[in-house]
Design a binder for these strands. Structure first.
Lengths: 179, 179
DNA sequence: CTTACTGTACCGTCTGGACGGTGTTGTCAA
DNA sequence: TTGACAACACCGTCCAGACGGTACAGTAAG
């Protein structure tokens, strides 16, 4: 029952992310996801009655995971400002070799409106940071630079070397610390 | 002859960009592009024998236009460092209401390798800026922040208000000026 | 005669999704 | 305790439609 369903759901979501990353965002078909998840197409459509619902599931999962990571990070970290936490968390995310969210491209191709929740999440995050930082200029620069880093990671761009990434992180933290 | 061909080519490219922006990147079909360009499908395939060639044309045109804009800007501008020129140019690009390059998503969906020329272009640009700037930290921050701005524009994200964008631009130029 | 198309008809492939079936599990009356 | 029954989770097949691409005949301009 519940357990089985939850496992299937998660397996499918993970499989979708894998397929998008490995076969390219344009090859994210239901068949591909189903076979990757070890589930028949019928089973897939049982969990996600339409492709749009699958995409929505991906978005929601992604946002939930990020929010939770940010929350736990800001909660238990000693003396770390929210902006610092956000910078470090994002930098960590981008450190991983594989872009974790290239399914986003599939979602956009399917329907650009899938971005709406992500956009509003970002807007909320920005507003929150704005409320907890008194140097708007520093916040803007840091926030945008992180956005740039995420974008590069998403596009699997290797413009920056690891050393450069480290230097960037240090610079941003320096800017953010003045607070 | 030449004139007719060149016009058709450009019209088709522009039509493709329009379709991608208005109907969504997933709806960039040959039929849609042809009818939008006021050209028959046969005529479209005469100019671009395959969809891949169309995408390639989009990428090449985009890069060429950007390179030229940057060149003229750095050439005639008095006392503007290359980094400043790049910042101002990109900020201008992002000021326009419509994301100019949402066809990129179509290209990625078709085949992620279409990004390769863009990536190498960015790498070259970064290396060039690195050679002409002596504060690597400032360069990194500015370059990434601009990347973030471009990404937001591409995703049609309205996280930043116009005022905030202006403030960001001023901050970046300030950082870049220390040089 | 060549160039630069138009227009139509067509093919093979792929995709989302509908549908009918199936085994396993939980529930509940007798 | 057991047997009937229903809900659940999933399977496998089938199909209409859209898409990229081809082929080809026609045409207007130079």
């Amino acid at each position: 029952m519940k357990a089985r369903r939850a496992n299937s759901r998660d397996r499918i979501l993970a499989a979708a992310a894998d397929v998008a990353r490995e076969a390219g965002p344009g090859s994210l078909s239901l068949d591909a996801v189903a076979s990757r998840a070890g589930v028949s197409k019928g089973g897939l459509l049982y969990n996600f009655p339409t492709k749009a619902k699958l995409m929505q599931g991906l978005v929601e999962d992604y946002l939930k995971a990020f929010e939770q990571a940010l929350e736990t990070r800001t909660a238990d970290a000693g003396g770390e400002t929210p902006l610092e936490a956000y910078i470090r968390l994002s930098a960590n995310d981008c450190e991983e070799p594989q872009p974790s969210a290239s399914w986003i491209f599939s979602a956009i191709a399917e329907d650009p409106d899938f971005l709406t929740p992500i956009k509003s999440f970002k807007r909320q995050l920005f507003e929150r940071l704005k409320g907890e930082t008194n140097d708007l200029k520093a916040l803007l620069v840091c926030f945008l630079a992180i956005e740039g880093l995420r974008s590069m990671n998403l596009f699997d761009s290797d413009v920056l070397s690891p050393d450069e990434r480290r230097l960037l992180l240090a610079s941003l933290l320096e800017i953010a610390k003045v607070n």
